[in-house]
């Protein structure tokens, strides 16, 4: 029979899990931004990224993160209203 975790081990395990979950969240956000911003900003891939494409990509990351936050708030408040 497995022994019980002590309080220290428990806290450590929880922190580690939280970190991994947060990391997965970041990875998913980066995956989405790569897809959406490439689609939006690089319509005709040339020999190199030009300055307007780079500018667009930078705006796109700012905007995408902003959209994520806004949608998270809107979804959260909707769920609470419905509950």
């Amino acid at each position: 029979m497995a022994e019980q975790l002590n309080q220290f081990q428990k806290t450590e395990l929880m922190d580690k899990l939280k970190q991994e979950i947060a990391m997965e969240n970041f990875k998913e956000l980066i995956r989405q931004m790569s897809e959406k911003c490439y689609k939006k900003c690089v319509s005709k891939p040339g020999a190199k990224l030009d300055s307007s494409e780079t500018k667009c990509l930078n705006f796109c990351v700012d905007n995408y993160m902003d959209a994520w936050t806004k949608i998270s708030r809107a979804y959260g408040s909707r769920i609470q209203r419905d509950a």
Partner: peptide, 20 residues
């Protein structure tokens, strides 16, 4: 939220991007 952001981005962000 990830799924909604993907969908709503496609539907709502149709103009040229600016800083905000």
């Amino acid at each position: 939220v990830h799924k909604l952001t993907e969908q709503c981005w496609e539907k709502c962000v149709t103009d040229k991007l600016t800083s905000r």
